[in-house]
């Protein structure tokens, strides 16, 4: 038989490298934007979840439970094929960023909420007693402390966010996985294609995962 990793297949891969380069660039862009969105939503809804106001806590629960208990693929598929029936045709990159960002925002909200609640109540009281507003105390006193606790799990979220941008492949999103699927199904040279894709995801995710480990070690030492 011809090996899935035959040399001529690798040559074809090298010849068509720009296909993968474009996919890699799109994945990086989608991941960066989705991460920014997820962090923003995660912090806001995490604070909501820890706030002494019932309404915001309810909002936090609705968001987190709804997103965590439905598959990402369904959410993305809805944004892609469902919304157009309601007259909203979002560009595919926006669908990806929105889908992945909102999805991981829910997980980050839980991480942030747990982080805030791990900070002693006296910190908030100290801030309030000095004349800080609740939001101001959060921003200047609680969140900077929670950040230390929260950074390792947050970085893990970033890693899985990067990997989850591959759902874009399901909606012809032009990401790394899509181009790899497309190229390897045209040529059937799936061997080299998926090895390369794996390596490229590793290049993004490994530094993040290492960062998470280091932060975890640091948090362990100081705390």
């Amino acid at each position: 038989m011809v090996s899935p990793f035959a040399w001529f297949k690798w040559q074809a891969l090298i010849r068509d490298w720009s296909v993968f380069g474009q996919g890699f660039a799109n994945t990086l862009l989608a991941a960066a934007l989705a991460l920014a969105l997820a962090l923003g939503l995660g912090i806001v809804f995490g604070v909501f979840g820890a706030a002494p106001v019932k309404l915001t806590r309810v909002l936090n629960r609705i968001y987190v439970e709804f997103i965590q208990n439905t598959p990402l693929v369904i959410q993305v598929f809805f944004l892609y094929n469902g919304l157009p029936h309601l007259g909203v045709m979002l560009p595919v990159l926006v669908v990806g960023v929105l889908g992945v960002g909102v999805y991981h925002g829910a997980y980050i909200a839980e991480v942030v909420r747990a982080g805030i609640q791990s900070i002693h109540r006296g910190q908030l009281e100290a801030g309030l007693s000095q004349g800080f507003s609740y939001v101001g105390a959060m921003r200047h006193i609680i969140l900077p402390q929670a950040a230390r606790v929260v950074l390792p799990p947050l970085t893990n979220q970033a890693v899985s966010l990067v990997k989850n941008t591959s759902v874009l492949a399901l909606i012809a999103g032009g990401d790394l996985m899509y181009h790899a699927d497309s190229w390897s199904s045209d040529t059937l040279y799936y061997g080299p294609a998926y090895v390369l894709v794996g390596v490229l995801y590793l290049i993004i995710c490994y530094p993040l995962a290492t960062l998470a480990r280091n932060l975890e070690r640091r948090a362990g030492v100081s705390g």
């Binding site: 598929f77 892609y80 094929n81 469902g82 029936h85 399901l170 012809a172 699927d181 497309s182």
Partner: peptide, 18 residues
């Protein structure tokens, strides 16, 4: 061209106007 994994997905994309 847009490429999809399965035929039902292409049909869904046709129905939604993608």
């Amino acid at each position: 061209f847009l490429e999809f994994n399965t035929y039902p997905e292409i049909k869904a994309a046709l129905d939604s106007g993608r």
